[in-house]
């Protein structure tokens, strides 16, 4: 039996066939992560496995506390898994490096560098000469539409502009994969929608694989080829969903059946009673329990 969100048009199915025929860029193999604090061990991630194909746009979504941030930090090499491994183009990820670009939720532009120097940072790390780096950086700044702000300092930019520079800076370092940890989480709704379209536009034009963390359902569906849905306690893969919405994505598609059915399905997955709302539902039950008790007296 196929559910509504699993019904794909020929066009969409064709896209997925092509996508899956491409090389695998990122391979995550039974990743596990436990934290121990004060003698208590917490399972943040358990047996997480998935593949990301070249030029794929994957979003990862899940309730808070499902370990999605931990997961992306492990992918970036900023944290280490307790078990399992991450392979990038077949090589094991053992630490952070220029192969895995990252855009953070907080603004991480270097405040002491102008926009263009920020974008040049990764290029200079690769040993490219100042003038060459500048030339290349300007192309990336063009791509995110900020050429007029090349000589501005980060504190002179709006939140959306800062994140655009952060994307340009990460891409300029020529990563094989771009990891994004709720990069638009701090932006207002309007800017956020614009940034999503920007990002898709950039992604369409260059050869980059993106793994994007979010807790926003619409964002997850709007951007993704496939969505990895995690569940909390312990962080496990619940489902890997193929988004049935054709590309290019437009805001209007959010009102159409493929989008809505996907949204409903993920909504049910994330808000299933097994998730961490347990405490809350007990509180809600308390009043009726009291009502039931009273007539017995």
């Amino acid at each position: 039996m196929t559910l509504e969100y699993q019904q794909q048009t020929i066009e969409v199915r064709d896209r997925f066939d092509k996508l899956k025929a491409r090389d695998i860029t990122l391979q995550v193999q039974s990743l596990g992560k436990t934290f121990s604090t004060n003698g208590n061990t917490v399972n943040a991630l358990t047996d997480v496995s998935f593949d990301v194909h070249r030029r794929e746009f994957m979003t990862i979504i899940g309730p808070s506390g499902c370990g999605k941030s931990t997961l992306v930090r492990i992918l970036a090499g900023l944290e280490f898994a307790t078990s399992g491994q991450v392979l990038l183009n077949g090589d094991r990820v053992t630490g952070p490096g220029p192969d895995t670009g990252m855009v953070f939720q907080t603004y991480t532009l270097f405040p002491w560098l102008t926009v263009k120097k920020n974008v040049m940072f990764g290029l200079r790390n690769r040993g490219i000469s100042e003038s060459m780096a500048l030339q290349e950086a300007m192309q990336w700044i063009d791509l995110v539409g900020l050429e007029r702000f090349a000589n501005h300092y980060p504190h002179q930019l709006s939140g959306g502009m800062k994140q655009r520079v952060a994307i340009a800076r990460a891409l300029a370092a020529k990563p094989r994969i771009l990891l994004m940890d709720e990069p638009f989480g701090a932006l207002d709704a309007q800017t956020r929608a614009k940034m999503q379209s920007y990002l898709l536009e950039i992604w369409r034009n260059i050869d980059i694989t993106i793994v994007f963390i979010t807790h926003d359902l619409d964002e997850a569906i709007f951007l993704a080829d496939r969505i990895l849905v995690l569940k909390a306690n312990p962080g496990e893969v619940q489902e890997l969903i193929e988004v049935p919405v054709p590309r290019p994505r437009l805001a209007g598609q959010m009102l159409e059946t493929p989008f809505i059915s996907t949204r409903q399905h993920i909504g049910q997955l994330i808000h299933s009673p097994s998730s961490e709302d347990d405490g809350l539902s007990e509180v809600i039950r308390m009043t009726p329990v009291g009502d039931e008790v009273e007539p017995q007296w």
């Binding site: 952070p96 953070f104 907080t106 991480t108 940072f121 990764g122 790390n125 800076r169 370092a173 990563p175």
Partner: peptide, 11 residues
């Protein structure tokens, strides 16, 4: 996060 960002940029 600034240090981490720099690490992902190959510093």
């Amino acid at each position: 996060a600034l240090v981490e960002a720099a690490m992902t940029l190959g510093s």
